[in-house]
């Protein structure tokens, strides 16, 4: 009896997890991802260090969302956020690192 209950619970957990993993992204998911990406890109802009690839990926995310493909839109927005954060990290690192390249 206990064993049957354990199998049932395991199956239920697996079913919930699988459903969650394959659940389609929504417009709300996209908006949240876009807001995070745009906030990071604005920070990169304040450092005068935006990347063209970030801008292109943001554009692609909005285009996918406009076409109703929220899975792609969310993926692209998250990718744009990662790119923007990388450009911020680059700018911060270069605030000091540039001096090492100067001809002396």
């Amino acid at each position: 009896m206990r064993l049957r209950l354990l199998f049932s619970m395991t199956g239920l957990i697996w079913l919930v997890a699988a459903t969650a993993a394959t659940a389609a992204s929504t417009n709300a998911d996209f908006k949240a991802a876009l807001n995070a990406a745009e906030a990071a890109e604005n920070d990169a802009g304040a450092l005068k260090n935006q990347w063209t690839t970030t801008e292109e990926t943001l554009t692609a995310a909005k285009k996918a969302a406009a076409a109703g493909d929220f899975d792609t839109a969310v993926d692209d927005a998250r990718q744009a956020e990662a790119l923007a954060k990388a450009s911020i990290a680059q700018a911060r690192e270069q605030e000091i690192a540039w001096r090492a390249a100067v001809i002396h």
Binding site: A91, W98, V102
Partner: peptide, 11 residues
């Protein structure tokens, strides 16, 4: 002039 920028990380 010496600051690296862009995704290609070039100055």
């Amino acid at each position: 002039f010496y600051t690296r920028r862009g995704q290609l990380n070039f100055s």
